[in-house]
Design a protein around this nucleic acid. Structure first.
Length: 723
DNA sequence: TTAGGGTTAG
């Protein structure tokens, strides 16, 4: 199919190297510059006491700053390097003039200007010429973290030979921060443990760095608690920065009470909260839309002399929206507009999303239109919210129209936007547009994520492109995304329905691999599919691993089919596996026995009584199936093995197969021997069949095997009656 | 003399 080529190539786009790109690709569009430009107004204990000249200018021309302590020739060298059009030749010309200290100034200059190539080139040169010190390492590693190049940072860190540099606290903090910025929290914790073993003495900055990684990780709060405990046991104290981070951790993990607790603790310790601390706590209140507490907090903030700024008011809007207070929200939005704080789409997005999620979709659209009419520029968020809202409400045409509108007017795509558009086009069955989105993803080197795959598989299933759906699931699995059970179960059924049972089995296996707790019924469904498609070898695998989760009747059908049609070389294995699975679990073989009927059985039944030999005597009046009963519930404790008549039939079929293939004599004798060992004996029909054909197998051997069976059964019977 | 932070949207 034509489609396949495009979709296939798109999705099998080579994965980008570990971690580095994966994080960058999921990043949101660039945000507006800091809303708190005058950071130094925070009266909290700033770590660095920089000369006032350093803090005033944020000019990249650092030569003027560090240059105060440098000789004129070195100052000139720094300026020349900063402005060099050919860095390499300037470096070789100035080699004798400039040392590590001056070069570090140039390195930081390039770093602040995000001239990553120059940073790397300069640092390489510095290393080659032995002009590096601790400061060079920590700055360089920091910038590699900022440029999303943690691999380079690690390469340099691992290459440090001098132990005193390797365990220098700045260098360590730098590499830990670099890894955390790039989403490698777990690895950074491991590295931190190793560093401590190697002699690092962590300081407040180390803990603050590690704590910042807890904001976005699962279970971040308990990880943070551990770090704080360690910090305190090392005699260190939490500072304003650390409180800010911890409050953000509480908010991102929806832990409102914990946030309040830390906020109070901070005040009690004489540390006055700044706007960041207030906004984190406010954000925690937005979790359950606690408007009362939010309003109180704003008052508290005002009386502490802090004016609510744009972010605080926007966060307050979030509290109102989450609390379902839409009228109050509208008023606050008007206030934001009046203050000039509604020039980007964020407050509109908050309100729209809240309205849409409460089902007020046309009111959400009205906000969207108002925003557009006001000429507020969009980074795609508002479109994404509206398109998703339409999709959720099954207003598919509207979703598609808005998607097209976005595409016609914007040329900005990230993964979320692409997924949103993809979903809109998939829902309306716009194949051309779907393919267009996939091409775009390819072109922009944006790797598909779980959502992308999920949208596509669902779409392909709906359109009955089962092969494509299958290939996409395979791709998804190979890229390490967990599979969705519901979607895969339906694909399994559909594949089976179009005669692709082996592909269905493959999906089943991928699903089993990626998901621990599958619903019990899936195994049975898979077994049924494979049995009816006569893929008995595969069915055997399903049976062997999941016998306890499959109903007796399905197992029985499988066994009968295998005995009749399965690979003759595997018959004994299947019988044994079935026997031992009954032994092992038997949980689904619920049988309400009439004890008088059953004498000995070979399986453990309950703790109260145990029977040891089954009587294969003829004359069972019940049909095999009638004695398989579904599990009645946890209190119906008589879990049981298959009834005797079932085994009778199994052995009869097995013997019939062997009789038809005398060259499998060894296997037949092996089965008979095994049966004796387990206390199973043949019924009269099978016995007669065997005796009739015993010539082919060697009369002597058959007679011997049958008499052994009798002997075994007698012994066991005697034991049974003694008990 | 180099290392840390926290607030709002899909």
């Amino acid at each position: 199919m034509e489609v396949f080529v495009v979709g296939g190539s798109s999705l099998s786009h080579p994965t980008t190297p570990i971690s580095v790109h994966n994080y960058s690709s999921s990043s949101t569009p660039p945000l507006s510059p800091s809303l708190f430009p005058n950071k130094n107004n925070n009266n909290n204990n700033r770590r660095r006491r920089l000369p006032s000249a350093w803090t005033k200018t944020k000019s990249p021309k650092l030569a003027s700053k560090g240059g105060a302590f440098l000789s004129p020739s070195r100052r000139a060298a720094i300026i020349e390097l900063q402005e060099a059009s050919d860095l390499a030749s300037s470096l070789s010309r100035l080699e004798g003039t400039i040392q590590a200290q001056g070069l570090n100034i140039v390195l930081r200059h390039f770093g602040e200007l995000r001239r990553w190539k120059d940073v790397i080139q300069l640092f390489d040169w510095m290393q080659k010429h032995g002009k590096v010190n601790v400061a060079s390492y920590s700055s360089f590693i920091k910038y590699m973290g900022k440029s999303l190049n943690p691999m380079k940072a690690l390469e340099v860190y691992n290459g440090i030979q001098d132990d005193s540099i390797r365990r220098n606290v700045s260098v360590c903090n730098s590499i830990l921060g670099c890894m955390i910025k790039n989403g490698k929290f777990e690895s950074s914790i491991k590295l931190f443990d190793q560093m401590k073993k190697d002699g690092l003495t962590p300081d407040v900055v180390t803990y603050s760095t590690l704590l910042s990684g807890c904001i976005k990780v699962k279970d971040g709060f308990s990880k943070a608690t551990r770090l704080i405990r360690e910090l305190e046991s090392n005699g260190l104290e939490m500072d304003s920065v650390i409180y800010g981070t911890v409050l953000a951790i509480c908010a991102s993990h929806k832990l409102c009470e914990e946030a309040e607790m830390y906020f109070q603790k901070m005040k009690d310790r004489g540390c006055s909260p700044n706007l960041f601390h207030y906004s984190s706590l406010l954000n925690a209140y937005s979790v359950d839309g606690n408007q009362m507490k939010a309003d109180e907090l704003i008052e508290d903030m005002k009386s502490a002399g802090l004016l609510p700024n744009k972010v605080i008011l926007t966060t307050l809007l979030k509290v109102y929206v989450r609390g379902g207070l839409f009228e109050k929200s509208r008023k606050l939005l008007a206030e934001l507009q009046a203050l000039g704080h509604a020039e980007d789409e964020m407050p509109y997005c908050l309100l729209m999303d809240g309205l849409a999620k409460e089902g007020h979709i046309s009111e959400a659209k009205a906000i969207f239109d108002e925003m557009k009419a006001k000429g507020v520029k969009s980074d795609g968020y508002s479109y994404s919210i509206m398109i998703s809202a339409y999709c959720r409400s099954e207003l598919l045409e509207e979703a598609k129209q808005l998607a097209k509108d976005y595409e016609d007017n914007y040329d900005k795509y990230d993964l979320v936007m692409l997924n949103t558009l993809l979903r809109a086009y998939c829902n309306t069955g716009e194949m051309e547009n779907v393919m267009e989105m996939l091409k775009k993803m390819d072109k922009l080197a944006i790797s598909p994520d779980w959502n992308t795959f999920h949208i596509l598989v669902k779409y392909f299933c709906k359109e009955k492109y089962y092969q494509l759906a299958y290939r996409t699931v395979e791709d998804m699995h190979n890229k390490g995304h967990p599979l969705d059970e519901e979607l895969c179960s339906s694909l399994i059924l559909q594949l089976a329905h179009v005669g692709e049972s082996l592909k269905a089995f493959s999906v089943y296996n991928m699903l089993r691999y990626s998901k621990r707790n599958l619903s019990n019924s899936l195994h049975e469904r898979m077994l049924k599919i494979l049995v009816s498609a006569k893929h008995l070898k595969e069915a055997y695998v399903v049976m062997k691993d999941n016998a306890e989760l499959i109903s007796g009747s399905s197992l029985a059908k499988f066994m009968m089919s295998f005995m009749k049609l399965g690979n003759i070389n595997m018959i004994n294995d299947v019988v044994k596996a079935f026997h031992s699975s009954g032994h092992r679990v038997g949980a689904k073989w619920v049988y309400l026995p009439r004890i008088g009927r059953i004498r000995d059985d070979g399986f453990s039944v309950t703790k109260q009584f145990k029977v040891t030999l089954m009587d294969m005597g003829d004359g069972h009046s019940e049909k095999p199936e009638s004695r398989f009963k579904p599990k009645a519930g946890p209190h119906n404790s008589l879990t049981f093995s298959p009834p005797l008549s079932f085994w009778k039939e199994v052995f009869c079929l097995a013997v019939t197969r062997y009789v038809s293939l005398p060259e499998k004599k060894e296997l037949l004798l092996h089965l008979l021997q095994w049966m004796s060992g387990q206390g199973y004996i043949l019924d009269s029909t099978s016995r007669n069949l065997l005796l009739k054909n015993s010539r082919m197998f060697g009369q002597h051997l058959i007679a011997e095997a049958i008499s052994k069976q009798f002997a075994a059964s007698k012994n066991l019977r005697i034991q049974g009656t003694k008990r």
